[in-house]
Amino acid sequence: MATLNFMVGQEQGNVPVTVLRVEGDIDAATHKSLQDKAAEIIEAGSTHILLDLGGVNYMGSAGFRAIHAISNMLNDGDTPGTMKSTHLKLLNPTDAVARVIKTLGFDVYLDIYQDRGEAIKSF
């Protein structure tokens, strides 16, 4: 059965940023584990997450639903003054995932970075 692998790192931007690297396909079978992992990180105190998608070759609609759920968990109680999440950003999606992000217009809702340093500084 397909599973996701996670790597968690701590960085310091203007605020502390947790970098969550995901490896594997994010689909109907695996999206829950991503959501659970993020919930665990948020439970432990993280308020800003950079989701590193460099190891994800496929992301279906379930993956996008998981990302929305994570964004919801992070922005809990926040007043959205902007369309884009200030708590969740994406890093380095593969070409296949970037294509789907563009088709669904998810780049309208979330900032996407190619460079890790730049991404961390942006928080």
Partner: peptide, 11 residues
Amino acid sequence: GGVIGLFPAAQ
């Protein structure tokens, strides 16, 4: 624009 139903502030 992006998909509908997720982000309340979407334009």
